[in-house]
Amino acid sequence: MSLATFDLSPLRRADRWHPAELAFWLLPVAAYLVFPDNLVLLTQIAITALFCLSLDLILGYAGIVSLGHAAFFGFGAYAAGLLAANGIGDPLAGLAVAALASAALGFVTSFLVLRGSDLTRLMVTLGIAMMLYEVANKLTDLTGGVDGLQGIEMTPLLGRFSFDLYGKTAYWYAVAVLFLLFWAARRLVHSPFGLSLKGIRLNVARMPAIGAPVNARLSAIYTIGAAYAGIAGALLAQTTQFVALDVLSFNRSAELMLILVLGGSGSLYGAVIGTIVFMSAHHVLSDMNPEYWQFWLGALLVLVVLFARDGVMGSVRRLSHAAGGRRKGER
């Protein structure tokens, strides 16, 4: 093959939107029309999907393991909640403040987290989240402690759409934020920065030898992931007008990890699909005894680790690969 005939299109086309993706983003509209009585649940799904997306950025792309990602979710939730409870009820201002607060926390803690091995990272992230939980638990004057933060009053979105009783505004608000941030994350992972994150995950030892400042890159994505998680937390605080202490809990971090593994990490869509599957299953199954739910959740986690490590997206990829191979008759 010569330089003149070389086909660059596989690289150039990598960031194009696939028709299946466009169809995927019609799902929120379809869900709105089909389940108009379940908007609260659908809003929760959008928020959790955003939260999971933030974990995918740091774990799926950069390979930073975390058992305490709820720290940023909860920090953002409290930041937005406190802002609104103290008279500044503009939703977008709340998102901005939460994003900045969580990003700052992420930036500072990134230096602690990035020092160690995977095992140290797991324990440091866990420790940081537990510390925040204890702080929120004890600062009852500020956070309401175990009773939760109340008195959150939101002003209308963009000055026009007030948060209604049916949750319509909340739903479209959460979906719009999710889509915008998904779009931004999608740009990010297809950029040179995103490529270098994949490089770090695949072979961290090689990266300095091609001149990449590994820690600076990891610090940056950790901060961005924290900001995303903070915005997700803020959305929860704003749409439910309440912040419960469990936004910071270990269970939330662990569950998030499960959702990402279930959906498949490192594809962005895996995070969203995993959330949809998980939350729907939760909704359907928790009508049964809630203890059963936790049991099957645990069993599922064990099975996924043992047998289906690449999750739903991995299966989709394998299937489409097989189909594509048959079509082209090669590979």
Binding site: M257, G298, V305, R309
Partner: peptide, 17 residues
């Protein structure tokens, strides 16, 4: 280590339930 953690969290959930 991540897989081990996920696996053992699964066991924890099952034991709690």
């Amino acid at each position: 280590h991540l897989d081990q953690v996920l696996f053992s969290i699964g066991l924890v959930f099952m034991s709690i339930a």
